[in-house]
Amino acid sequence: MGAEGAQRRDAVANRQAVIDAATGLLPLDPGAGMQEIADRSGLGRSTVYRHFPTREALFRALLREVIATSGEELEDLLRGQPDLAAGLCDVGDLLVRVGMRYRFLYSHRHEAAPMLNRVGHDPSTPLAEFLAVARGRGEVRSDLPIAWLVCQFIALTIALVGDVITGRVEREGADRLLGDTFIAMTVARA
């Protein structure tokens, strides 16, 4: 078990090293190849290919990674945030920033759909919990389910990133626009 355990830990560390290298490199150079990613990770090409036989496999892992880190960042952002509108503003800000940083994943968004759908329906994500607490205070409209709101937030974020990429919407002010859209659809009106 000892040697096997160590091997396993190595494999996990190597896998993470590849993911880290790719998330560091691809935002700067979206066309970077597997060789360049291997170089940056400090691992051999064959080790990289053992973990990710294809570019597609690597991109799937990157999508998972980006979703997971965004979840962690949202948790930090919303912890102890008492104000619904201010919180949603910050969420819009964060999601546009993450979305733009990882815009090289935009063309892979369809592969991410099942993952994002699960996230959207999970009541224990930081965003869903934040909305549930605010609903308890009567601040979130009661005629739309929280899962609906979160799924729409996710879809709107990806769409806005697409609009910025194609130049339909300006990058400047896009974060405000997203936060403002979230607020408009969420806040209970008198």
């Binding site: 609906w148 709107l156 609009d163």
Partner: peptide, 27 residues
């Protein structure tokens, strides 16, 4: 105070997301 292009995107995206929800049997 929202760009018209964004409003058009919103109308499309909110509808498409609803379709996914209907297909998944959520609503």
């Amino acid at each position: 105070d929202q760009p018209r292009e964004w409003q058009q995107t919103v109308m499309q995206v909110v509808t498409l997301t609803a379709i996914d929800e209907v297909r998944a049997g959520e609503i």
